[in-house]
Design a protein around this nucleic acid. Structure first.
Lengths: 153, 153
DNA sequence: CCTTGACTTAAAGTTAGGTTTAGCAATTAC
DNA sequence: GTAATTGCTAAACCTAACTTTAAGTCAAGG
């Protein structure tokens, strides 16, 4: 029952638990590059199961599709990725994760300070002035925090 | 120059660093409930500065507008919220934060295991089967992880 | 051969959290 | 008093990450 190791999109979906529509979408985003058979249908390899699984894990970690695509581009194109290849990527993710945990922990500690003072005051509260943001735009008492969005005004 | 403590939307925007359009949006989402003057323009109170600042902090923590609105609904409507009121909310957030840090830390530790084995194998890898998710839907070898999205298929 | 089920594309729809635009009214400044 | 600001609403637009729909093609079984 496995003349070749090719998988249809439906089979890949079943094996990974990822919706068919999502898999097609991932192709448009450059996360996977399936071949096509003579009829134009996608043909995946078993290595794509791992690839897609990696995508889901990375998403769980909070990475965007673009960031994930960037990592995947570092995998060898010529051969099937091996342990070491995946390991290198995992190390990068580990670093990112460390950073995020640290940020969140710092935020939590600042919140602890706030529970004590109950202030939430623009001038005094640490929460409004995390060291890693603010300050920069030096224009009086504005800019509470430089959050993820670009439009601070 | 301050006959009453009422603020226009522009003033509130300046004081909080939040765009006027965002403030209007927050009103549609029930985060703030400004009065109107005779001309139909919004009139905010100084307490709204704190309220909006709280919104931004909560967003930094990763909460959605809906979740934030829910918390804000627990503030007293009759009087201006005091330290104790804000403190109670902060405690709830602290708990949520703790949970998130824990999840992320666990994920990181699992990743550490993976760097060692380099597996990323559906059957064996911890990353695919975090204890807190999976299992539930008991239907063969599917459902890698129950991530944030609803459409697992 | 023909039906059924899986697959194809393109385009439109969805949610979150806003921004932008258009056309008009109220305030403020001179 | 009039011009420049600022504010108002409604509706359209934006990005991410997909899903849904429409209309049609391919593959497998009997």
């Amino acid at each position: 029952m496995h003349p070749t190791d090719a998988l249809t999109i439906g089979q890949l979906s079943t094996r990974t638990g990822i919706a068919v529509s999502a898999i097609r979408y991932y192709e448009t985003q450059g996360l996977i590059h399936p071949d096509r058979n003579t009829g134009g249908q996608r043909q995946f390899r078993r290595a794509d199961i791992r690839r897609l699984s990696f995508v889901r894990i990375a998403q769980q970690f909070g990475f965007t599709i673009d960031q994930i695509a960037e990592q995947l581009r570092m995998l060898p194109k010529a051969r099937t990725p091996n342990k070491a290849d995946w390991g290198r990527i995992a190390v990068k993710f580990r670093k990112e994760l460390d950073a995020r945990i640290e940020t969140l922990t710092k935020l939590r500690d600042d919140l602890d300070g706030c529970i004590g003072c109950g202030c939430l005051s623009l001038q005094k509260c640490k929460l409004y002035n995390p060291e890693d943001v603010a300050r920069t735009k030096g224009s009086g008492p504005r800019y509470l925090m430089g959050d993820t969005s670009e439009y601070t005004d």
